[in-house]
Simulated assay, not measured.
Amino acid sequence: MWSSRTSICLRAVVLVMCWVLMSCVKTETSPRLHLYGGKEHDQYLGCLNCKPIENTSIWNIYTPYGDVNGSRSIWNKYGTYGETFGRLSPFNTVAGSPPIVLDDEGLSYGYLTIDQYHPDRCQLPVALAIYDNVDEVRKDVQGWYKMIFGDE
């Protein structure tokens, strides 16, 4: 039989090999989440958890979804989907139709709204970070992406 020292070494080799194999495989654990606004939620407002390099990302400041002046941007504090008192804005405490968060399959993750009493308020960590820091996020959209998601 093998000595206990050999057995420990073999276990260590197997664990290292498993770690190397797992680190080589990229897995997507989170579904892509999209914002839809408008009274009928038929206006696409961008991808909530996509990287800033993606054209549909709300974190890409060079697109209508991430530009603080974009007409479809939740970061535009003067726009339909970002103003404090707009009925379609996530930042209105009594918005009638805040944006909804849906994945690629159409599964709802709730409504993006600072209204803490909304019965179907999105409670994802990214949403909570946005609710609590919207004014700061608007000043550094891509910097906040890195703080929230921890990558580029």
Score class of each variant (00 low, 15 high):
residue 2 W to Q: 13
residue 3 S to A: 10
residue 3 S to E: 09
residue 11 R to F: 12
residue 15 L to V: 11
residue 15 L to Q: 15
residue 15 L to E: 11
residue 16 V to R: 01
residue 17 M to P: 00
residue 18 C to H: 01
residue 19 W to K: 04
residue 21 L to G: 01
residue 25 V to L: 13
residue 25 V to Q: 10
residue 28 E to C: 11
residue 29 T to G: 13
residue 31 P to N: 02
residue 37 G to E: 12
residue 37 G to K: 03
residue 39 K to A: 11
residue 45 L to V: 05
residue 50 C to V: 02
residue 50 C to P: 00
residue 51 K to N: 13
residue 55 N to Y: 10
residue 56 T to F: 06
residue 56 T to R: 10
residue 62 Y to M: 06
residue 66 G to S: 09
residue 68 V to R: 00
residue 73 S to I: 14
residue 74 I to T: 14
residue 75 W to Y: 09
residue 75 W to C: 06
residue 76 N to I: 12
residue 76 N to K: 12
residue 79 G to P: 13
residue 81 Y to I: 14
residue 94 V to L: 05
residue 95 A to C: 12
residue 96 G to C: 01
residue 96 G to I: 02
residue 98 P to W: 11
residue 98 P to K: 06
residue 99 P to N: 13
residue 100 I to N: 03
residue 102 L to W: 05
residue 103 D to C: 03
residue 104 D to E: 14
residue 105 E to C: 06
residue 109 Y to M: 00
residue 110 G to F: 05
residue 112 L to F: 10
residue 112 L to H: 10
residue 112 L to S: 07
residue 112 L to V: 05
residue 115 D to L: 11
residue 118 H to S: 11
residue 129 A to L: 00
residue 130 I to N: 02
residue 131 Y to H: 13
residue 134 V to S: 06
residue 140 D to M: 05
residue 141 V to A: 07
residue 141 V to H: 01
residue 143 G to N: 05
residue 144 W to C: 00
residue 144 W to E: 01
residue 145 Y to W: 14
residue 147 M to K: 09
residue 148 I to A: 02
residue 150 G to N: 03
